[in-house]
Nucleic acid binder design. Structure first.
Lengths: 180, 180
DNA sequence: CCTTTCATGTAACCTGTTACATGATTGG
DNA sequence: CCAATCATGTAACAGGTTACATGAAAGG
């Protein structure tokens, strides 16, 4: 997929500036991009050139000018088509599994240490996600159904980390029990 | 992380050619790379230049020559250090969630169709993983502990897709029940 | 006083992908 | 006869990251 659709999606919610989009993408756990300027400002120029969004320059007295983008009818249609296009499988990028694959070289204590470190990190991430879920700020809820979908998206992220945490805890206890 | 450590890991198992490594990486679900030539042959040249592996050219009568790489003591030490280095969190790249985020534009039937398509794909992937798990071929098992670790890695992948499937099935039934 | 926020944008770089190039052998 | 397997490698491109550049205002 392309980040352009992610941006188009955000603009289908409400008009936003590049700066706004950057903040949302870099703070959210849903988007797999860092939210760097280069990508976002370029993408906006591109989707503007394609007529998927319109641009409005808001001059401000003291602060720098804001370029606010609004989705067009053409943009809405393009987004709709993309949303219905064949979904991709989630891509799993778990470096820890590759580290674990070659961990037999380590002593029991060393292995325990590396696994504990990972468990700790996953645990922290899970707590952060649950905390964020408490205060639904940046999520659109124009209909009851949309609110429901966003709740489900949040639950997906939580359950993914919860599943990972369960797996790693079980790994820890099994290693201790069996005294491998 | 870098693919170089993934390659070093494989070579800590047994000596392999670039061609072998390419096959393993492109066929396995553990590695998040496509296994394209460019990356692999370049990486091998690099880790060879760093003295992490040694190279042996095996001339074959009819077939093209094989360049077989063997890990060195320096390579084993570097791998060991990497395995113990601070683990990263798993990176979640799930495009479907972003599609779902803007799916409120769709009719009930259209949304049902897109979700079903996703559920179907995840289901197929899960079945394929379970099938692969039945025949443990390409996994090292030099000690009981190593066999255990690889079993756990396989279980991690399975549980991730199983968790995703459970989530999407629940999404389907909840949408039907509530008649959103 | 220093850091953060606002707000846009560019340059240089790194990583990864697809596609191309070569060429013999084996299997359906 | 055509496709796949073996086996290495390169060129062109796409996607993404970090770091740089500017410059005012607000907050601790």
């Amino acid at each position: 997929m392309s980040i352009q659709y992610a941006i188009l999606g955000l603009l289908s919610w409400k008009p936003l500036s590049g700066y706004d989009i950057k903040k949302i993408i870099s703070e959210s756990d849903l988007y797999p991009w860092s939210g760097n300027n280069n990508q976002i400002y370029r993408s906006l120029v591109e989707i503007h050139a394609e007529g998927l969004v319109s641009q409005e320059v808001l001059l401000q007295e003291t602060l720098p000018a804001r370029k606010v983008y609004t989705i067009t009818q053409k943009g809405l249609t393009a987004l709709r088509a993309w949303v219905q296009s064949t979904p991709e499988l989630p891509e799993l990028h778990n470096t820890f599994l590759i580290q674990l694959a070659w961990a037999d070289q380590l002593s029991g204590a060393e292995m325990d240490a590396m696994i504990s470190k990972y468990a700790e990190e996953v645990d922290i991430q899970l707590r952060m996600l649950l905390e964020k879920g408490q205060r639904p700020s940046n999520t659109p809820a124009r209909t009851r159904r949309e609110a429901f979908l966003w709740e489900k998206i949040s639950q997906n992220l939580v359950s993914t980390y919860q599943n990972e945490l369960d797996w790693v805890r079980k790994l820890q206890t099994e290693l201790k029990e069996k005294g491998h």
